[in-house]
Structure formats: structure tokens, C-alpha cells
């Protein structure tokens, strides 16, 4: 059975006079333990999809089944509970609380889950990302890579089913970015479902499956192996789009979806 099952998921919202179709009927199934990348340019709908997958928002229409539970129309209260128990977020800008120490940052989800043994669990999560000795440091005293590792510890402290990472290496140099990706690989090996949202194809192809989006639709969804990896990286699948990777706010040229 799928861990995540989306049926005709739509998200429309008004912007000025027009209705923006941020998601236009997405069907998607992700199994437990998969490592999936969602990629696409700005405006492709990948952020909206991530917000919906993360239960931060509700779809305009369609169904979202998460771990056997229909979550697309839950109350704010229940959505908060789902986020707390089943989802761990990692953000591009780390989003740590500056005033408090690394270990207190890691403890935040435990705190809202009204859990006991907070100190012990937080310390273990920090040790898992190799930051045990830095527990009492404030975010301002840590390097970018270390901050992101604190954020990952915070995401995994509640032992969620899913890690949702939004451009986790976007603010890091290549070497540090690789270290962070290694942690995701480790979590994946340990059985956690990892969903990575990124516009960088060389990051995306490190997952076992790459989903490409454009204009609110999935245009490509494939397993990554040696041949598809080089295709994805070279951009031969969608030459007009993939020649210039990176944030691009101009409307994407029309291209036929492939592989759906």
C-alpha cells in the first residue's frame, strides 16, 4: 500500500483578477521508504505540492491519503497533529529559532507533541546527525552545514514517516551540500521516506525517483538508474526546459510531456 496517495489534487487561489492554478489535478503515489525528488522551475507548482504533502495547506479539490488516513479535509487541529507525528520538515533557510540552543531547537516538535523524555530524545537525534558535542550552541555559533544538521535532527526527533526537505542544500556550498545529502541517504537506508524538493537537477538525481513538474502538472516521473540519470542531467528529455536550469521566472516554453 502507498504511504502517500494523491487523486486529482487541485489547488487554485485568486491573485488579483485571475485564478492561479497552482496544482491542476495531480495524481501521485509514493510508497513507504522511497527517496523521491520533486523538481521544476519557479511557478511549476512544486512548492504548492510540498505544502499540501506537508499538511500545511488544504487542496481546493481532490483527495490526499496519508498513511491510510484521508487528510485532505481535516481540521486545523488534526492537521497540526499529523504534521507533528508523521512529517519532518527541512527548509532551505534552516528556520531555526535563533534565541535558543541547538538542543532546544530539536526539542520543539516533542514539546508540541506533549512528549516526555524530551532531553534524552533530542540528544539522540543530535547525535544521529553528528552534532552531539554542539548541543548547547546557539544557531549563530554554528556553520551553515551544522545549522542544517540541527534542522534535520529536529525533523527526525519525532520519528516521522516522511521527511519533507525544501531545497535543503540551496544555501550551502557543494561540499557541505554533499554532507547533508549523505544524511538523507542514511535516513533513507534506515527506512524513512524522503521527499526532496529542488530545482537543481544534480541534487534531484541523487534520489531513486525524480518527479518533474510544470504549470501545476507532473510532466515526468521516472526511476533513476544510470541511463536515466545521464538523460536527466543532460536535459535531453526536455531540451527547451533543461538547457538553463536554475530559477527562471519567465513562462516555460511549451513542450510535450514525456514519460507520463
Amino acid at each position: 500500500m502507498s504511504l502517500i496517495q494523491l487523486d486529482k489534487l487541485m489547488k487554485h487561489y485568486p491573485m488579483g483578477d485571475t485564478m492561479v492554478r497552482a496544482l491542476d489535478g495531480v495524481d501521485l503515489s509514493i510508497k513507504s521508504g522511497e527517496f523521491v525528488s520533486i523538481t521544476g522551475h519557479s511557478g511549476s507548482g512544486k512548492s504548492t505540492l510540498m505544502h499540501l504533502l506537508g499538511c500545511l495547506d488544504r487542496p481546493t479539490s481532490g483527495r490526499y491519503m496519508l498513511d491510510g488516513q484521508l487528510v485532505s479535509h481535516l481540521s486545523d487541529r488534526s492537521l497540526a497533529q499529523v504534521r507533528n507525528r508523521k512529517i519532518g520538515f527541512v527548509f532551505q533557510t534552516f528556520n531555526l529559532i535563533q534565541r535558543t540552543s541547538a538542543i532546544d531547537n530539536v526539542a520543539v516538535p516533542l514539546f508540541y507533541g506533549r512528549q516526555s523524555n524530551v532531553g534524552e530524545k533530542s540528544r539522540k537525534a543530535l547525535e544521529r546527525v553528528g552534532l552531539g558535542p554542539r548541543a548547547t550552541h546557539k544557531p549563530s555559533e554554528l556553520s551553515g552545514g551544522e545549522r542544517q544538521r540541527v534542522a534535520i535532527a529536529r525533523a527526525i526527533v519525532n520519528e516521522p514517516k516522511i521527511i519533507l526537505a525544501d531545497e535543503p542544500t540551496g544555501n550551502l556550498d557543494t561540499r557541505t551540500g554533499k554532507q547533508i545529502m549523505d544524511i538523507f541517504h542514511e535516513l533513507h537506508r534506515a527506512g524513512v521516506t524522503v521527499i526532496l524538493v529542488t530545482h537543481e537537477m544534480d541534487v534531484a538525481v541523487q534520489a531513486e525517483r525524480v518527479i518533474r513538474m510544470r504549470d501545476g502538472n507532473i510532466i515526468d516521473d521516472r526511476r533513476v538508474d544510470d541511463s536515466t540519470r545521464s538523460e536527466l542531467l543532460s536535459g535531453v528529455m526536455l531540451p527547451a526546459v533543461e538547457q538553463d536550469p536554475g530559477p527562471d521566472r519567465s513562462p516555460p516554453p511549451i513542450a510535450k510531456p514525456v514519460g507520463m
Binding site: 486545523d76 520538515f89 527548509f91 529559532i97
Partner: peptide, 16 residues
Amino acid sequence: TREIGVRMAMGAQRSD
């Protein structure tokens, strides 16, 4: 505001 968003993402209820 952003911190509140992060806390909500981590599972903070509106009442929290």
C-alpha cells in the same frame, strides 16, 4: 511571523 510558521509546521496547534 516566520518562527510562528515554523512552530506550526512542527505541529504547534493554534491554541499553543
